[in-house]
């Protein structure tokens, strides 16, 4: 996963609150291997009719080229399924901008280079009004913590550790291996001082 500092692309609105992970990707698609791609399952039941055809009354469907999603509050609430992030990333999204995110979703997003940018309610309303059912060219600057949508500039909130991680595109396992000595020391200490914390051998 590569890091990134700036991104320019088309922004699209999904002005609904509580888009939970079950809506982002219904459970029945989660057995698919990642290599097969998850983009087609993004918001499947919201965007497609019973036989899987994209519906015309969903404004979102007209803009497959968008890479920045402006969504309502509590986006990504619900399950820990990282497939919800895969669906967004594989559909071409680099950022979701919303007033609030589910905790596990946001952390999964950062682990996949997808920005979960938190904005205030008034800024959210302004962006949604500007977008309507269409797209607008937008840019994101991670270091400045800003989204520019046409003439509008909005500041977003992002945990500092997440900003660093997105910019560097770090792989946590590689990072952690640098601390192997500390981990081994901790493990030995815990083993000695809290032997009860190891499972007893079940018969």
């Amino acid at each position: 996963m590569g890091g990134w500092t700036t991104h320019a692309g088309l922004a699209v609105a999904l002005p609904l609150a509580n888009i939970d992970t079950d809506q982002l990707i219904p459970a029945r698609f989660m057995s698919v291997p990642r290599a097969d791609g998850y983009g087609q399952y993004l918001l499947h039941d919201l965007r497609r009719d019973a036989d899987g055809t994209l519906t015309e009354d969903c404004a979102f469907n007209a803009h497959a080229d968008a890479s920045i999603l402006i969504a309502g509050e509590n986006f990504g609430s619900g399950s820990s399924r990282e497939a919800a992030v895969y669906a967004l990333v594989d559909a071409g999204f680099r950022a979701v901008i919303a007033p609030r995110f589910g905790d596990i979703f946001a952390s999964n997003a950062v682990n996949n280079g997808l920005l979960p940018a938190q904005i205030g309610a008034a800024d959210y309303d302004a962006l949604i009004n500007q977008l309507g059912g269409g797209t607008v060219r937008a840019s994101i600057d991670l270091e400045a913590g800003q989204i520019t949508l046409a003439e509008t500039i909005v500041t977003f909130v992002l945990d500092e550790s997440w900003r660093i991680k997105l910019i560097n595109g770090w792989d946590d396992i590689d990072l952690t291996q640098q601390h192997r000595n500390s981990i081994d020391t901790f493990k030995d200490h815990r083993r000695r001082t809290a032997a009860w914390a190891w499972p007893a051998a079940a018969e």
Binding site: S80, N108, I173, T176, I183
Partner: peptide, 15 residues
């Protein structure tokens, strides 16, 4: 609860 990337991390490091 953790996501798949974190699950892989716990599997690989127990942390």
């Amino acid at each position: 609860g953790i996501g798949a990337t974190e699950v892989a991390h716990v599997l690989a490091t127990q942390t």
